[in-house]
Amino acid sequence: MSKHVVVIGGGVAGLEAAGRLSREGLDVSLLEKDSITGGHLNRWFKLFPDRRDSSEVKDYLEGLTHANNVKLFTNVTIEKLNRDKDHFSVLTNDGKELIADAVVVATGFDLFKSSRKEEYGYGIYDNVITSADLEDMFRKGEITAADGTVPKKIGIVHCVGSRDEKAGNLYCSKLCCVTAVKQAIEIREHYPESTLFCFYMDMRMGGAYYEEMYREAQEVWSVNFIRGKVSEASETIDKKVVIKVEDTLAGRPLKMTLDLLILMAGMEMSEGGIKLAGLAGLKTGDNRFFEATDHHFGSNKSNVEGLFYAGTCTSPMNITETISHARAAVSEVVDYLKNS
């Protein structure tokens, strides 16, 4: 009888891990809290840096799980997760109990809830949206202000909920800078007459072809970059958004009226992950993400033997890194089951 592995979370990391584990000849159950798999891929339209359609990645991942007979359970949340001697017992909300030889946790991340930065007015001012809201607009093919008009002057705020002690997150989410550049280019492509302003504290373009995208945004798409943290937004009578920022390089405060303000929401440990950490006694770090046993050679290992992490439940990662991390988790599981 082949060994049974439970994978928790059906996003990028979970799908990749489940498909690969199954291909290794293991019996794999994949648990997903939503009705469909794919996680955040379902919300994002095009991906950086090559701007391919997110559905291509999703198709690859789901193809991998289907081809390898992964048992998929959707609309499932975990109620209990215990380790008894050499196996795990996973109790789900629909009363099923799964017995597993190993568990892969791939609970992913949640986007920072931008309404928590009240001074930016998300949920209060009509024309303040988040990067995720903008992706929805991209998918629909029309980018509009709240009153349905075409926004001409658009601002993008970096680091919303990242690198911000007041939001409780000291870390950098790593992907918002490149997302901002990608989205700025996309808007300019869509509306050549629009003007784009990115307000950043530092541009962190640390991935393959990110810096090149930044150059392209400046050179080809005339996106303006202003170094300064937006302190607050207010609303005019005609529902335009006025932001206050210091143009730190000019050394003077700057005030700007915008038709649309886009907040680059950062990544946070998912609520599901926090709940699971409590249920299974998993260690989390100061940043609330799961804490792996070693930064360098144990990034998949948890403090519970036989339970492994895959993907953004341990720290912010892009899709490339997530898939690599999931594959690494697979090799850890295989090693573990071979030796147990």
Partner: peptide
């Protein structure tokens, strides 16, 4: 209150 626009509004 300028940093809590919900109150101001």
């Amino acid at each position: 209150t300028h940093l809590t626009p919900s109150i101001k509004n």
